[in-house]
Every structure is written in C-alpha cells, then in structure tokens.
Design a protein around this nucleic acid. Structure first.
Lengths: 212, 212
DNA sequence: GTCTATACACCGATAGAC
DNA sequence: GTCTATCGGTGTATAGAC
C-alpha cells in the first residue's frame, strides 16, 4: 500500500470505522472489519493506533462532537415560537431520515460511552444541552416570548424529547406518526413560554410578534 | 449439580443473564459469564437452550415485557392533570433510581433488538405506547380535561419523553435536574389538553387558555 | 512503513464419560 | 441430566521479513 502520513491513516480508519458501525453495528466493528473497509492490513491499524480502544475514543470524540442535535431554521422572522420549534425538530428528523444508520451508530456510541467512558458521555450531553439552550434563547427572543421555566431545564427537556423521538423513528420508521409527534412536542414545549400564543398555524402578519 | 426441571433452569439462566447484563453490559454477557453467575456449567446451558441467541430472545421477551414505562399514581381524585403527569413520571424515575444498572441493561437490550430483532423492538415499543395511552386517557377523564391532540400522538410523545429523561438521568445522575425536567415535561404535556388550566399550582378558573 | 504470518485469549457449541 | 474436555472460529495484538 501507498505510504501515508500517520494522521491521514488515522482519519481514514476512523471514517471506515464509522461506516462499519453504521452498517453492521458497533459490536461488529472489529479491527479486522475496519481495516477491510479501509483497504488496509491489520498491522497498519496497529501502526496508527495503540489499540482498538484508542480508535473508539477518537471515534466518540470526533464524531459525536460533530453532531448538532438541534438546528434552528434559517429564517427566524415572522414565525411563532411553536413554528420555530416545529421547524427545528423537523429539521433534525430530516437529518435522521437522510442517514438513519449513521444516527443509529451514534446512539450505540453514546450507550457504549455511557458504560465505559462516562466522563465523555457527560461532556457530550452537556454540549448538546448548551446548544439547545442557545437555540431556545434565540427563539424566544425573536418571538418576543419569555420562558416561564428556567432555560437550562427547557433545554434539558428539548434534548430529551429529541432523543426520544429519534428512538421512536428508528423503531417505527413511520413518517406521518413522527410528524404528528414533532408538532405535538413543539406545541407542548412552546407552552412553557409566555405570553405570546404558542400556536396557531395560520399566523397573520404580526410584526414583532405578540407584544413586548 | 442438582437436577432441575429444564424450565426452572431456563428461568435461572435468564435471571443470571440479566444480572450480568446489568453489571457488565450486554456485550460481556457471554454464555460463560452467564453460567458462572448461575453456578452451572456450559453444557447445562446448551441443554436448556439451543443457542445463546435463543436465550437473548427470551431475555428480551420476558424482561422488556415486564417493564412498565409509565405508571399512574394510585390516587387520582382531586389532582390537576399536571400533578398526575408529574407523579407518574416521577414514579418512573424513582424506579430508575432504584436500579439504574437494570434500566441501563434494558436500554442496551432495546438497542440490540433494534439492530437484530426489529419486529420485537417494534412490538415492545407499541406495547409501551398503548400503556401510555391508557394512562393518559384515565388522567384526562379524572381531571375533566380533553386532549386537543390525538391521544396516540400524546402517548407517543410521553413515551419519547420518558426515554429521553431516562437517558438524561443515566448520563448525569443529577436528581435535582431530573426533577425540574420532569415537572417541566408534565406541564408541557398537560398543555396539550383543554380546557382545564394546565399548570400553575394556584390555578384560577381560566377557561380555555390560548386555545388554537 | 508496510506487509505476511502467527501468537494467544476467549467465544459458542459439542462429544462422550458417567 | 450433568459433567469434563475439546473443537473450530474469531477477536486483538505482535514478530519479523522486506
């Protein structure tokens, strides 16, 4: 095989490992399967990494950190809070639908980290929650609403809902059901803000939303 | 070893397997580890079960089926919908707190089923959702409220929230944070019902909130 | 640096004595 | 029915030629 800088080799192996984990599950992501996917030999693997565990660490760090659980829609103006939440959740579900195997691998990685790398799991989860808090703060700002429950708590709930809906879709693969659940979730979470109306789809041209 | 009816042996092995899965994770729940935990020999295992896969099947069936994700509090009278939901979720979290390792094993079993026994995972999930729907119907009945979103959708959301909060607590082990999140979740879900006020402990007679 | 060949541990499963 | 001993396969990791 061609000579390659060890860092390039490492990256290639991590990407190969992610593909294997997505298609066959983490428990079948063996060193042999990874090098086969990457077109390398076993010895090359152990030249690049001390051990399989070391690669798994990098996999969790690089790949879970790249995940962004919630994304706000681009356009924030002229939408109600419920609409923003619906679109945000819907965007995440779209991402899930686009590559379910990958997201399932993420779930497996999280669970593996939970069992054997607890500090990494904690840090990762805190990161998701901070990101959710930022999105929620922006959303309330742009709709002139105010969270009547502490923002970190709402953020926790949003992350929990996202995780739960992910599992729901992975199990059932039911697009209509998940869309209903997403809308209900958005409406429910929006009810934790005041005073603007949480809801109705047909919103008239209300500049600056409801009140202050 | 003492002779035992094969069904008794099967049960003992399944219980041993659950203990191993809880303490060391599903991927370390090998036939050898199981029989060591049960105080048997390898040969006895294969006398009771055709294969390890067969035991895992039974484990999923017997043990996931025994799970009841949401339980209503005993006393339903004189409580608001939010209170009922809070107590129900809180009861589940108590159950989780009492035996986190077991619940983590459940999560691993679910994920394993998702990867290799999809129909079983689907059926199990549907069972949880039906149970949630029954609880939600009872709760709205007893509080004189009505779900303004289809009941199955609310049930889906409740299951998703339960799953998400489970993961949250397993990662953070933060009792105060989870209690806040539980209360917020209850309040949010209660907002999907009308007309009774979804929320504040001191609830005035506010007819039909913001509605839609 | 990259390869082939192999060491060594552990897996699920079975044969055959008792 | 229950045991000990062992098979064949696969896992991670390494030795040593090139």
């Amino acid at each position: 095989m061609a000579r390659m800088p060890v860092e390039v080799r490492r990256t290639a192996l991590i990407e190969a490992a992610l593909r294997v984990a997505a298609s066959r599950g983490l428990h079948e992501t063996t060193t042999r399967a990874i090098v086969a996917e990457a077109g390398m030999t076993l010895a090359s693997f152990h030249y690049a990494f001390e051990s399989r565990d070391e690669l798994i660490d990098r996999l969790i760090l690089d790949v879970l950190a790249g995940e962004e659980k919630t994304v706000l829609p681009d356009e924030l103006e002229g939408r109600t809070l419920t609409e923003l939440l619906t679109d945000g959740l819907h965007g995440y579900i779209e991402h899930l639908r686009a590559d379910p195997a990958r997201e399932q691998a993420m779930l497996e990685l999280t669970q593996y980290a939970l069992r054997t790398r607890l500090p990494m799991a904690k840090e990762q989860y805190a990161q998701y929650t901070r990101l959710a808090a930022v999105s929620l703060a922006l959303a309330s700002q742009h709709t002139g609403t105010r969270w009547i429950v502490p923002l970190p708590t709402v953020a926790q709930l949003l992350v929990a809902v996202t995780d739960g809906l992910t599992l729901n879709w992975l199990v059932n693969r039911d697009d209509e059901a998940i869309d209903s659940a997403v809308r209900a979730a958005a409406r429910a979470i929006a009810a934790l803000a005041s005073p603007a109306s949480p809801a109705s789809p047909a919103s008239p041209a209300s500049p600056a939303g409801a009140s202050h």
